[in-house]
Design a protein around this nucleic acid. Structure first.
Length: 270
DNA sequence: CTGGTCACCTGGAAGC
DNA sequence: TGCTTCCAGGTGACCA
């Protein structure tokens, strides 16, 4: 499920329960997801205090006194808090056990990532290549216009390029372009500065609205079986092919771009 | 460099 | 009912 808002909502849901707590044990049940899971994690983490949980793009970074645990939810990953002693189910790959709760990482499709680093996390190869954070003030229309100058690829797959900017996945790329009234097929480099400003605002607004929507049910999201945290309920175009556009009532269309489904309203988006 | 395709992996939905 | 095919919200390797 996770795009940036889901990751951020998970982070906010975990912080009040885990920050400052001492790890009782760590359990690794799977040798590798996208990357090998370090077999030393149990010995590295036992007895350590979790100082903070940060986010970089769609990665969560767990800060311990002896290093950082870097976690990515992939396509199907989720984190939840369960009562100690709860038997693990299929696809439960990793547990971080505290005295009163257990953080459990489940990922059926196994596209997630769990790695350990003892150097500054931003210098880790997975994080060092990441682009700008769209929720920071440095990200605006002027930055975007400059960053996509000269690029002939359609704007939608460009928005999903994490080396350019992080956190905009397949859903929010479509939703943000709808918000800005820009066709996903338009060549990125041909979008005017004025429209890049609209797009930057739409991206931020879409992400923040989604975080806020999840934010009201953070506890449910982290504690539930996944029923909550359904951010798609409020999508304007994503997964709505043939349904009426919420603005003009014309039919939403879909097309495949770079192997991913794109949804847009041809009347509202030019 | 750039843009496009594919592989990674599992499960659910749709089609026959 | 059972089998097959396709699709899924991410990412990086690889190719032209």
């Amino acid at each position: 499920m996770p795009e940036l808002p889901e990751v951020e909502v998970s982070r906010r849901g975990l912080v009040p329960y885990l920050n400052g707590k001492q790890v009782r044990a760590a359990v690794v049940r799977t040798p590798k997801l996208r990357h090998p899971i370090p077999t030393a994690l149990p010995s590295l983490l036992a007895g350590r205090t979790l100082r903070a949980i940060d986010r970089r793009g769609k990665y969560l970074v767990f800060d311990f006194s002896n290093g950082w645990l870097i976690l990515h939810l992939g396509m199907s990953g989720s984190l939840r808090l369960v009562v100690p002693g709860t038997p693990p189910q299929k696809h439960d790959h990793f547990d971080l056990e505290f005295a009163d709760t257990v953080m459990r990482f489940r990922d059926p499709r196994r596209f997630g990532t769990l790695v350990w680093t003892e150097a500054a996390p931003d210098s880790h190869p997975l994080l060092a290549v990441l682009g700008i954070e769209p929720l920071l003030p440095e990200f605006d229309g002027d930055w975007l216009h400059n960053a996509i100058r000269g690029r002939s690829a359609p704007i939608k797959p460009v928005l999903m390029d994490s080396h350019l900017l992080v956190g905009v996945g397949n859903i929010y790329a479509s939703e943000s372009l709808f918000g800005a009234g820009i066709s996903p097929l338009r060549a990125a480099g041909k979008i005017s500065l004025a429209r890049c400003r609209k797009l930057a605002i739409a991206i931020r607004k879409t992400l923040e609205a989604s975080i806020a929507a999840g934010g009201s049910s953070v506890r449910d999201y982290v504690h539930s079986d996944g029923g909550a945290g359904c951010f798609q309920l409020s999508c304007a175009v994503y997964d709505r092919e043939g349904l009426p556009c919420p603005v003009c009532c014309g039919p939403i269309r879909s097309v495949r771009q770079a192997g991913r489904s794109t949804y847009w309203c041809p009347r509202c988006q030019r």
